[in-house]
């Protein structure tokens, strides 16, 4: 298991002589086994933040450290789940999980068995031979999660993974993710633009503001000891926090369209 730290990370993109600051001086520490949700208006650089942690981008300034070591690029210790699922359309569900295992260097011999195990873990054992276009959005994201978990990452990085799902499926997957997290104890960084989702899943919620992207606040979520399956969404404290977060997001550059 691993912790992940960002030290004074600034990310700048240069396009046509025009330097754009996407993230300014972001510092953040995610402890081993923690579930951190990152929330912010669109354009606040939260996806960039995740790509920096994944090693897909190099920070313009500052450092990204995993277990105290500066990362040089993607590593098999970190699994990434994308909103668009990113499943290979020419492979079956099983093939997609095996693909991740092959990339991580698992031998041919153990791949099949392990892939089946993890498809079973996300409840898709019967759909192993289906192609992505024969699966619903929720099922596709389960396959993607199985693919990420199968390589036993220490850190799971999730970029709005349930953003494209209908509310019902989203809630089911949120509960499943919490169950898996409790069972495995991964460190999870979960990007979302949904306040309820952030409060429901995260043990801490980091609120970002934009123009340029920066950390606005970090809030501890006090529902850590709830029993599995208990719905905290109706608790007065939850509603209070929701109002508080909504206020923050509006103050600090929420969408003009009232997106948040």
């Amino acid at each position: 298991m691993s912790s992940i730290t960002l030290q004074n990370v600034t990310q700048t993109y240069t396009r046509r002589d025009d330097a754009q600051v996407v993230l300014r001086d972001v510092s953040l520490s995610v402890e081993t086994g923690e579930f951190l949700c990152v929330i912010g208006p669109s354009g606040c650089g939260k996806s960039t933040l995740l790509e920096l942690m994944a090693g897909l981008e190099r920070p313009s300034r500052g450092q990204v450290l995993v277990d105290g070591r500066v990362i040089e690029g993607p590593g098999r210790g970190r699994g990434v789940v994308f909103q668009q699922y990113a499943l290979m359309p020419w492979l079956t569900a099983l093939g997609n999980v095996e693909f991740g295992l092959a990339a991580a260097g698992y031998s041919r011999r153990v791949r099949r068995q392990r892939a089946l195990e993890f498809l079973d873990l996300v409840g898709l054992a019967e759909y192993a031979s289906r192609h992505p276009d024969e699966l619903s959005g929720g099922m596709k994201q389960r396959v993607a999660i199985a693919r990420s978990l199968a390589i036993s990452p220490d850190i799971l990085l999730m970029d709005e993974p349930f953003g494209a799902l209908d509310p019902e499926t989203r809630e089911t997957l949120q509960d499943e993710l919490l169950r898996l997290w409790r069972a495995t104890g991964h460190t999870v960084v979960f990007i979302t633009h949904d306040i309820d989702e952030a409060l429901y899943l995260g043990r801490r919620v980091m609120v970002m503001a934009r123009g340029p992207g920066r950390v606005a606040a970090v809030i501890d979520v006090p529902f850590a000891d709830r029993p599995a399956g208990a719905d905290v969404r109706t608790l007065p404290r939850f509603i209070e926090l929701r109002q508080q977060l909504r206020g923050m997001l509006h103050d600090r550059g929420g969408d003009a369209h009232g997106h948040l």
Partner: peptide, 14 residues
């Protein structure tokens, strides 16, 4: 080719 597939591949360390 869907860019996100390539991104996923990079994240897997290919």
């Amino acid at each position: 080719v869907d860019r996100v597939l390539v991104k996923a591949g990079r994240a897997m360390g290919l």
